[in-house]
Design a protein around this nucleic acid. Structure first.
Lengths: 384, 384
DNA sequence: CTACTTACGAAGGAGCGCTTCATTAGTAGC
DNA sequence: GCTACTAATGAAGCGCTCCTTCGTAAGTAG
């Protein structure tokens, strides 16, 4: 809960430096006076901090903005371009990558299609190609990368080893962290994709500002990611959110209602069936509507379990089917109304397919803060 | 995630004072040198901090310990007796209260039996009697109380109003916080009893040191309390942990298997039936064993949901039936093994009936830290 | 009674943030 | 083109907090 280390003068400076950087990152270029006001420090002190940060390369001066009264003020900005971050989304059918500056501003994006049953090495090669594509597009080199954050399907343990992956056979028992660390000469972070999507929605999407969020991945497979008290919740063994494993949640087979609907014409590829059903339901096809109702029936059970257990502020619907949120949201809300103690907001993802990549970038950004100022959380308080 | 306020010199001192107090609270009387070593400060600085804390009444000197080499060192201790805390457990049939010093050391305890359907004023009077009993026993007065923390059955909203209470009719729609604040001239904290029990077990009980804990209240009613990342999880509307509301969790009627077992002889009061069944099962009565199996069948469903969703380090079995944990733990473990992704530790509460009161005290103690040094958590970071 | 051990207390110094004030580099008005 | 006004700058001086150092004090051990 807190460390027992007392603070030095230098620690105070460290703290103030961090505060300044945070202010700059949040609000773009700022004059010394503005910085001083925001941080609560005096101008001279702020100046000293700024000089130090410039010396360290965190901050640089930009030309003063003209057209103001009085003597033009120095302006400083966070050097977001002094390093780059990469976020990767390893999905069943696609590998997406994005490259951003240290502010999380995305500068390049790529996508590599890959077959779910592709052999391991092919998959890893696709990852490498996706990242290299980003590097080329943004004219940066791998040595400029500070962090690579990866979101992947499957259950990943705390060491970054894949312990379960129904969708991608080649992924089983893989030491993913190890392989990726060989690939990139910088820290590699690995997380479950739904958790990163949840993070993305809380930081940049529809759930901005919410502290407790449940993200539902609705698509060909079901998944969930939790944000609790503003932080991604991994669980002790990094296996949080695996509701679909519980038969009573009725999540595992839920998508079958959409896949096997009678409204789907012959000859449609199995992976497109659900899309057909949802589209038909939108057009009022009663058979399709019935299938969707049954689907949401099942979806609502596991969702209600999460809502009752966690009482989140918001439930965000994401994943492939969330493109059809117009036919899903209301039925889901109706069912949750009757089941839940306190009804959370239920909204559709605004980030869509980008969700996981953006979440990975945000994860890397959040990790960056830790690099600057490691939050050494001590042991938990116990009885005396 | 962090405030944007920079720090003053005085803030540094504040921080170091807090660190010193924490060290003293954790380790009892300490010499100046020991304190300095633990906090990482120099001796002269530590001395100044100690002097200041003595002036403020937080700390006092105790006689030096004799029999040591060299000049005897001053010793300081946290003045745990400069104020008192009260924890109250408002149950259906009993109201328990405990009084502790600021270290959470319990000095007095009382219990007031009360009928579940007693009218409101009678219940409130019983609370007052319970607390006054503690004050008398410990020869303190209500004006020495710094905080009263209350754990109660029912669902309490964030303002301390009872929004749902199946077990205690008089509790419905009550502004409990308001009534208790009239009663005591100090801050009154209100929480759900299962959450406080979870807190007690993580701080003083079987789950010490675990960051993520699910506490199961198994008894005539079912409840759950969550500790996530070392903190009690309330949820956005303070309604977290209400798994029993979900029919599919099979929690709501689970106790009926024990209440209506054929092994219970005629004439046993309904509230003692479950105890009979559990006792019979322990003695090997096959009918009772069968009932217990069915009970655990149901219990395991909702529990598995929580485990799969949260992936806690430990599940703690508490509440009235946990006295029979010997017949419950193994069956529960067996079922969870087959249902969970990663099996958590499953243990029985070590605090028993005291659980909620102890949790309330711990809650008050934790709140005390905030009084010393308010952790102004700023807004969550959002996209720039 | 002496030697040893350990803590105490005072002195001096460095780092950090604050306030104050004369100075400087712009814009606005004539 | 000159003057008035505005707002930031830079230097000086102060106070607080922490640090190191050293002589002194108060015990125990022999």
């Amino acid at each position: 809960m807190a460390d027992l280390r007392g603070g030095d003068l230098s620690r105070l400076r460290q703290l103030n430096s961090l505060t300044a950087i945070r202010a700059l990152r949040r609000a773009g270029p700022l004059t010394l006076s503005a910085l001083a006001e925001r941080t609560g420090l005096s101008r001279p002190s702020m100046k000293e901090v700024a000089d130090e940060l410039m010396g360290l390369g965190w901050v640089e001066e930009v030309p003063p903005s003209p057209g103001t009264m009085g003597r033009p003020a120095r302006r400083y900005r966070f050097r977001a371009d002094s390093g780059y971050l990469v976020g990767v989304d390893i999905g069943g059918h696609n590998i997406r990558a994005a490259l951003s500056d240290l502010d999380g501003e995305i500068l390049a994006e790529t996508r590599q299609p890959v077959l779910p049953d592709a052999p391991l090495e092919e998959r890893l090669a696709a990852i490498e190609r996706a990242v290299e594509g980003c590097l080329t597009l943004s004219r940066t080199s791998v040595s400029d990368l500070w962090t690579v954050a990866v979101g992947t399907i499957g259950v990943i343990d705390v060491e970054g080893r894949v312990i379960y992956s129904a969708a991608v056979p080649a992924w089983r028992d893989l030491d993913l962290a190890g392989r990726l660390r060989e690939m990139f000469p910088c820290p590699v972070l690995i997380e479950n994709d739904s958790r990163l999507a949840a993070m993305a929605e809380t930081r940049r999407g529809v759930a901005q500002g919410a502290r407790d969020v449940v993200f539902l991945h609705v698509g060909r497979r079901m998944g969930a990611g939790l944000v609790i008290d503003g932080k991604v919740h991994r669980g002790f063994g990094a296996a949080a959110g695996e509701v679909a494993m519980l038969p009573e949640s009725r999540w595992f087979d839920a998508p079958e209602h959409l896949n096997t609907c009678a409204c789907v014409p012959e000859g449609v590829a199995p992976e497109d069936a659900a899309g057909h059903t949802l589209a038909a339901a939108r057009n009022g096809d009663p058979v399709a509507v019935e299938c969707v109702e049954r689907y949401v029936d099942d979806l609502a059970v596991g969702t209600a379990a999460m809502v009752l257990i966690l009482d989140p502020q918001m439930v965000v619907l994401g994943g492939g089917f969330s493109r059809s949120s117009d036919v899903l949201l209301e039925p889901l809300r109706r069912r949750l109304e009757t089941r839940c103690m306190r009804m959370p907001e239920v909204r559709a993802s605004t980030l869509g397919d980008e969700c996981v990549v953006v979440g990975a970038i945000e994860y890397a950004v959040a990790h960056l803060d830790d690099q600057l100022f490691p939050p050494d959380r001590g042991p938990l308080p116990v009885a005396r």
